[in-house]
Amino acid sequence: MKKFVIFSDSTCDLNAELRKTYDIEYVQMNYVVDDQEYPADLDWGIHSVKEFYDLMRNGKRVRTTQVPREAFETAFTKTLEAGMDAVYISCSSALSGSIGLARLVAQELSEQYPNNKIYCVDSLCSSLGQGSMVLTAAKLRAEGKSAAEVAAYVEADRLKVNQAGTVDSMEYLRRAGRIKASKAFFGNLFGIKPIIISDVIGQNFAVKKTKGAANARKEIANMMAENVIDPENQCLYITHADVPEVAEQLKAEILLQVPFKETYISAIGPIVGASVGPGTIIAFCHGKEVTIEGKE
């Protein structure tokens, strides 16, 4: 019998099988297309991966909303009612307001349920970067660690998750206001692929430029090689916005350089997808602590 509940949200990009294996629950954000709101479920029940990104390719604006208050209230109350603690590992606070709301709800409920606690951890990352922390938390729970211990561990460890990705077009990130980069990065430059990391405060930051998709993949592989620690015991995480063949290509190129123990590939969910756009690929690994803070 589990000692506490692990929650994540719609941006963790963990599929049903993994969530089941590791007993992970999640709260849903929403996305809006043509004034119609849809829950961002991790199993692509409404739009398939292709359908969703085709909407974007065809010029549809996709807006996103944070986890609604009721979702937190329902999920957290149910946990506390059952006499359990919970650890919620959220999407980066630089990308979503969900964590703030979660903390507020947890605080409000604490008076009513003084014997149990909801620990809210800001992953300072998203997609499988966030997802990898959720898996780590689940493994620690299986080892018998308490909610407090797990929350503290993940909080202390979160900056060791390294992200390196690239987008097909800067347009989506720019429109969503979800990136730090100077004007020169945004210039009308053809074939320029920015390499985007998640920085110390969890914002996406275009850390360098490459030219051409092949060079971008090469740079991502180099950054994985440079930042990983103990790859023989690590998993390489790759997410993509409806370019599975490119993700496979990136995986093969990274594995040529770095002997990861295992790899896990998934599609980027609609929330992150809406701000990075189709064609995006991102790799994550556990290794050196991120020290870069993006500046304009």
Binding site: S182, A184, F185, G187, L189, I192, V207, K208, K209, K211, K295
Partner: peptide, 10 residues
């Protein structure tokens, strides 16, 4: 152009 496009302002 090539040099400018890859200029690293950071």
């Amino acid at each position: 152009y090539s040099a400018l496009s890859m200029m690293d302002l950071y």
